[in-house]
């Protein structure tokens, strides 16, 4: 071979002081002890406890929290999605299943007859929202994915997703 280069890494020399570990152990102890006593403070405000007592105290999600998907509606309450499958194409978890169908209204043409998101598989990346050309899918429902006992309960179908939906501000058909 001959072209292997060897890099010698010197051990970091420890002084006797460091090697005895005692100062460092004391330093560590002082950190943990200060935490310990700080969190025993009778004034709860002064404690630095980060635990969220979830079911009792429900925290507001931030505005841009990516939660449960919702399917937006048209002005007449029909699903806004046109089944272009951009979202299911980009979805890295491959968890959106869409079957397209011909709509009775020729101005709509294509709409999803089946639209199922497996919320268990979803990694909540938000790429589907980015990909959607119609502002039809959003994740701003402000709800997290609800826990379920059965796998199928995590399959959210079109109508369920539409229940969370709302009207979009974007003009239908875009600006002309």
């Amino acid at each position: 071979m001959g072209n292997v280069t060897v890099k010698n890494v010197d051990r970091i020399k420890q002084t006797l002081w460091e090697k005895s570990y005692i100062p460092e152990i004391l330093r560590g102890l002082s950190v943990t002890t200060s935490h310990f006593f700080r969190n025993l403070n009778p004034n709860k405000e002064k404690r630095t406890i980060f635990t969220r007592e979830y079911p009792e105290v429900i925290t507001e999600y931030p505005e841009r929290y990516r939660g449960l998907h919702r399917l937006m509606l048209r002005d007449d309450g029909q699903v806004r999605c046109v089944a272009c499958m951009c979202c299911s194409t980009i979805c890295p978890a491959d968890c959106i299943h869409i079957e397209a169908g011909e709509h009775d209204d020729p101005t709509i043409e294509k709409y999803p007859t089946v639209f199922v998101i497996d919320e268990l598989r979803c990694i909540v990346c938000g790429l589907c929202v980015e990909a959607c050309p119609c502002d039809a899918i959003r994740m701003d429902s402000g709800r997290h994915i609800p826990p379920s006992l059965e796998r199928d309960e995590a399959f959210f179908d079109r109508d369920l997703l539409m229940e969370l939906g709302g009207l979009s501000e974007a003009k239908q058909g875009g600006q002309r």
Binding site: H35, F36, N39, L40, I49, F50, T51, E53
Partner: peptide, 10 residues
Amino acid sequence: KQSAKIQNRI
């Protein structure tokens, strides 16, 4: 409890 306090937990 002691470990919790040290680690800022309840």
